[in-house]
Design a binder for these strands. Sequence first.
DNA 1: ATTAAATATTTATATATTTGCATTTGTAAT
DNA 2: ATTACAAATGCAAATATATAAATATTTAAT
Lengths: 101, 101
Amino acid sequence: MIKIQEIDPDRLEMAANMLKAIAHPMRIAILKHLEGGKKLTVTQIHELLGIEQSTTSHHLGILKDKGVLCSRREGKNTFYYLKHDVLSQVVDCLERCTCGE
Amino acid sequence: MIKIQEIDPDRLEMAANMLKAIAHPMRIAILKHLEGGKKLTVTQIHELLGIEQSTTSHHLGILKDKGVLCSRREGKNTFYYLKHDVLSQVVDCLERCTCGE
DNA sequence: ATTAAATATTTATATATTTGCATTTGTAAT
DNA sequence: ATTACAAATGCAAATATATAAATATTTAAT
């Protein structure tokens, strides 16, 4: 049994940033739409969520910047998808915890 | 295969709040100290983290309010501990994700 | 080279969060 | 009842975040 976690401030900061990126209702909704390796464009997400295009782009930018999502441009479209699929499990886990209040 | 997640705005909000509560370097550090069912007092945590007593109390209050921690008073001390132990797994999972950047 | 569609950026405003100090409340001991 | 220790609260200043409107960039088609 190795104790790797001596609480490195930088890792702490990174983890917090990643979580902060996810910790927003719209961004969680985005993640849920991307579960299972799905790839969606900015427009698709903006229509699915019913929020402004620029707001959508901002949220996607945050998620990408913090290492939650990746993106790939194909012609005029940019597809976004989960970088680590486990992240959607994190969200599910959290939701289960919010259940039994 | 049941599709439970029709993305209820309230659940979304709840999950986001819980995540927001966790998404802070100091608060993640607190969770790591409480892993495995450990119970610590405000003073212990405030000394472990090297931050102000009132700041510590604030952070603990946020974590408790959002359903991440529970507390139990014993004499002059108040012990804080994880409500759902799975939450420390969430943190570990996240940290693993921050690794392979 | 123009035009149009998709995405990103800039900017401004509103709102929320973090932090520490000072204070207050709760509890136990003398 | 006074004192002492532990924890919580109110407050203010600094900082960060969210949103949307307007603008700019990128790419493809004509």
